[in-house]
């Protein structure tokens, strides 16, 4: 198939970028979206135009490196990651607009690549359970009810891709944070640090310049791992509890 691609080009963080239009022919349905961009890049390289920078690593939907705004939708029209999106979701003659995640907390590094270091810093502030190596008790000494273990697991599947932020009209990272709060908060091991965790993570979130949540739900709709909105409820509840405990 033949496509018209409008792609954001920006030389570096300081540069002002612009949309550029490329025509691409010979795209097959079986290609992934990123393989389609690989083909375009190979052609650009041959023509002497610098290839388009975009992030990807595992290309199987688990590492969270990839992430493009495709026709106004984070990761494109399907509920999956950009790397798992295939060209059979498009048709011959389509015009596709590709932009980087847009959020001031995720500055553009180059073209379609952004810096998501803010997520790491949020985790640094409490997205963990303090358990020094060697100090762990026997694994089966603390049973975890199966439903709690399941919920914890489901929320732990967040890949930190940032699509929730990209899709949110407020540029909020509440879904990402809520997923972590719920993952750790459902487990008995996560209880001792629970209040401190939510207070510090939210503090860092706000400090990074993410917006506040207005419960609109664009995040959950864009999330490739289908993290549900109720993690935000959990986040709010945990913060309220921490307030009550005087944090």
């Amino acid at each position: 198939m033949k496509l018209t691609l409008n792609i954001w080009r920006q030389a570096d963080a300081a540069a002002t970028g612009e949309m550029r239009t490329y025509a691409l022919d010979g795209v097959s349905e079986d290609m992934s979206f990123l393989e389609m961009l690989d083909v375009l890049n190979e052609q650009l390289n041959a023509k002497g135009e610098e290839p388009i920078a975009f992030d990807s690593d595992c290309r199987e939907g688990i590492c969270g490196t990839c992430g493009l705004m495709i026709n106004g939708q984070a990761h494109g029209p399907e509920v999956t990651t950009t790397c798992q999106l295939h060209m059979r979701s498009f048709k011959d003659g389509d015009e596709i607009t590709i932009e980087p995640w847009r959020a001031d907390a995720f500055p553009v590094v180059k073209d379609l690549v952004v810096d998501r270091g803010a997520f790491d810093r949020i985790i640094q502030q409490g997205g963990f359970i303090s358990a020094n190596t060697g100090s762990a008790p026997e694994a089966n000494s603390v049973p975890v009810p199966r439903d709690k273990a399941l919920r914890s697991f489901n929320m732990a599947t967040c890949i930190g891709c940032g699509a929730c932020v990209a899709a949110c009209p407020n540029g909020s990272a509440s879904l990402f944070m809520g997923a972590k709060i719920t993952h750790l908060g459902e487990l008995p091991q996560g209880q001792p640090e629970r209040d401190q965790r939510v207070v510090n993570m939210v503090g860092q979130h706000d400090h990074e310049g993410f917006g506040g949540c207005t419960n609109i739900g664009e995040c959950a709709a864009a999330c490739p791992k289908e993290i549900p909105l109720d993690v935000i409820s959990q986040l709010n509840k945990d913060l309220r509890t921490a307030l009550k405990h005087g944090h």
């Binding site: 847009r102 899709a167 009209p169 540029g171 207005t214 609109i216 739900g217 664009e218 709709a221």
Partner: peptide, 23 residues
């Protein structure tokens, strides 16, 4: 806060799940 969280707007943005009322 929300308006400073995204100063550079999208050229194309679709809404998937927001309602008229939420917007």
């Amino acid at each position: 806060r929300a308006s400073t969280a995204r100063t550079q707007k999208y050229a194309v943005k679709k809404n998937r799940s927001s309602s008229l009322s939420s917007r």
